[in-house]
């Protein structure tokens, strides 16, 4: 492993694992309620990939932290210990908002993961190698759906524009680098997120243009998820449901 502060590495791994855990959970809430059968299958498949990635990221985080398992981290931490970006913990909204959020996240992952596959940390590289194949497929699908609905009917266009307006202020957090990111970049484990912004804007810009949607002006960003300083009120409710059995029956094996 590269020479890096273990606490910093653990924070980085929690950010990766918590993003996929919380988004995977949100997507799984759609099960059985999608607009068309093919979407039920696709959403379950996306959630499945994300929870699979969670096992790997949190599994590694648990090793670095020591004396923990991926399940301990998922089911026994409270809100302030979660390091996911705010974007993924927002409620699903309508199908358009869910798919817009998915695209905004997939676009970031599709740029980040191929770089992580070349990480100086072989474990990070190995996880990213697997996850980047899934991300490539996810972004293709979510981009197609955003384009189809953005450039569909008047109603679908309006709904997608509303979703983009609502979610855009949560995009900036992805690129808000801090000391953890600086440590990862210095040791060659992960790129500085700020350095990925131009590529992200180009990708998202192209898809939104094709979808006939307008990216809102202004660069205001809601922050506080990836540092854990200020999550939204929504995360606590998500955890009450997700963690319920583990909390109600401590020590049981499932």
């Amino acid at each position: 492993m590269a020479n890096v502060d273990k606490e910093m590495l653990a924070q980085f791994l929690l950010r990766m694992g918590d993003n996929s855990l919380i988004l995977g959970h949100r997507v799984s809430e759609w099960c059985g309620h999608a607009p068309v059968l093919e979407e039920d299958i696709a959403l379950a498949n996306t959630a499945l990939d994300l929870i699979g990635q969670t096992q790997l990221w949190l599994g590694y985080a648990a090793e670095v932290i020591g004396d923990k398992t991926a399940d301990d981290l998922a089911f026994l931490r409270d809100v302030w210990d979660f390091r996911n970006i705010l974007l993924v913990e927002l409620p699903n909204g309508d199908f358009g908002q869910t798919l817009m959020r998915q695209f905004l996240y997939d676009a970031y992952q599709s740029i980040l993961l191929p770089r992580l596959a070349k990480s100086s940390d072989p474990r990070v590289a190995e996880i990213a190698e697997k996850a980047s194949k899934e991300a490539a497929y996810h972004v293709e699908r979510s981009a197609d759906t955003v384009v189809g609905l953005g450039d569909g009917t008047e109603e679908s266009h309006a709904r997608m524009q509303t979703a983009l307006n609502k979610l855009w202020p949560y995009v900036g957090e992805i690129f808000a680098s801090d000391a953890v990111d600086a440590a990862m970049a210095a040791s060659g484990i992960a790129p500085d997120p700020a350095s990925l912004r131009a590529e992200y804007d180009a990708l998202v810009g192209n898809v939104m243009a094709e979808a006939t949607l307008t990216i809102p002006e202004g660069d205001f960003a809601h922050l506080g998820g990836r540092t854990g300083a200020t999550h939204t009120e929504h995360l606590g409710h998500l955890l009450t449901q997700m963690q319920w059995l583990q909390r109600a029956y401590p020590g049981a094996s499932w």
């Binding site: 309620h33 189809g148 569909g152 009917t153």
Partner: peptide
């Protein structure tokens, strides 16, 4: 089914 009508219509229109 009802909530998804706009999605099906939108994708068909596209």
């Amino acid at each position: 089914w009802d909530d998804g009508a706009w999605v099906r219509d939108g994708l068909m229109a596209h």
